[in-house]
Amino acid sequence: MASPRHRIAQRFDELQAADRAGLITFISAGDPDYDTSLDILRGLPAAGADIIELGMPFSDPMADGPSIQQASRRALNAGQDMHKTLAMVRAFREQDSETPLVLMGYYNPIHRMGVARFLELASDAGVDGLIVVDLPPEHDEELRHPAQAHGLHVIRLATPTTDERRLPRILQDAPGFLYYVSSTGVTGATDAMPEQVEAQWRRIRRQIDLPIGVGFGIRTPDQARRIAGFADAVVVGSALTDCLQHAECAVEGKHAVLERVRALADAIAEAR
């Protein structure tokens, strides 16, 4: 039997066939605690998440705004670590073998565990891709090549500061999908401007066939609908971690996250 299609490619094929944008949801693993976080993770596909980004909490999240910083902090304070994050993926895969799952975070915890050991465990757990915020193309070979051997995509990012000279370097060898960071600054900080984002998205679209997900500053169903009019996928993170921050208790937080995901998914479904 031929090897199965990569889950990420498979999912984008399905989205294209249905002519709709995908919803990529970010939560921080272990936020606010392991059990609640696993419950949320398991509930995401049914609530409308097409692809899951699971954050690996880090003590020094330099590219994140207050919401995801606090999510990382809550998770670490509750005892989350890399092994628990991988265990959470394994538990998720027991019930869901179709939804692509991408781990997102910073390089140091991977570096500490050792790239080879990390990839072995991540691949075994059922991870499909990695987004490592502080590992630009200039340095990503040490992770990207061995990851490929395990069938894991190291997702590339482009930003508003990525100029024409630099873009080809990012697009070259980019696997899975491209993550377009729609504003400068940190996660959750400023509202995305759909018109400007669309112009940027078209600029990149002309140069690459890979699906392009758009994230940073997309909070409301209305914003998601507008981005989903053109983008291949919409990434929402801080708006979900906010739900956990503002909740009175973990159970309420879980319901709030899943409800927000349903609202975003409904809005995206109406976009085209």
Partner: peptide, 22 residues
């Protein structure tokens, strides 16, 4: 060229900052 002293150094920053360091 990548700012490395042996295997130390480099520019391990988010893509937003990468063009600025260049």
């Amino acid at each position: 060229a990548n700012g490395c002293f042996g295997h130390f150094g480099g520019r391990f920053v988010a893509e937003t900052l990468m063009p600025l360091t260049l």
